[in-house]
């Protein structure tokens, strides 16, 4: 296959993925966008959420944390805090995480300095659950 681009996913712990793929879809801070080979050079921030790529016409889903993507015409480099393959997320566990965060948030005052942080955690837990359900 000629029309493939190199995808690299890097986290602080390791090089999580490095292979050629046909297409990558990232959730940028300005919205979701897809990348094919020959994309214009782009530097975008990434919001936590779904990341998927197509290889051999098969889609694989991941859940990515916040970070950046650097795209050149042959290569996409994704720098994120964390990455999890959707397959490896256990639905029930993700559900439980979401519920416990939700309960924590419900018990908090809006003026609490931690409120925003917990709210963000909830958003993340919800997004993670959503990705887990895609498999």
């Amino acid at each position: 296959m000629a029309d493939q681009l190199m995808l690299e996913i890097v986290t602080p712990e390791k090089l999580a993925f490095s292979d050629v793929v046909e297409e990558v879809t990232l959730s940028g801070s300005e919205g979701e966008f897809g990348v094919l080979i020959g994309h214009a050079p782009l530097l975008s921030s990434i919001k936590f959420g779904e990341l998927n790529y197509t290889k051999d016409s098969k889609k694989t889903y991941w859940f990515a944390g916040d970070g950046y993507a650097e795209i050149t015409n042959l290569k996409a480099t994704v720098l994120v805090e964390s990455i999890e393959e959707a397959k490896s997320i256990i639905g029930e566990e993700a559900q439980k995480t979401r519920e416990s965060v939700e309960a924590q948030l419900a018990g908090m005052d809006k003026d609490d300095p931690d409120y925003e942080r917990v709210k963000k955690t909830l958003g993340r837990a919800e997004a993670r659950l959503k990705v887990a359900e895609k498999v």
Partner: peptide, 27 residues
């Protein structure tokens, strides 16, 4: 020296990346 498209703007990106940059150096 590639001319990138920046998304969001360069300043906003920079505002995001500085804390990350600090974290990386400290780590």
């Amino acid at each position: 020296t590639v001319d990138y498209i920046y998304e969001p703007s360069e300043e906003e990106l920079l505002a995001h990346i500085i804390p990350l940059y600090l974290r990386v150096l400290i780590y």
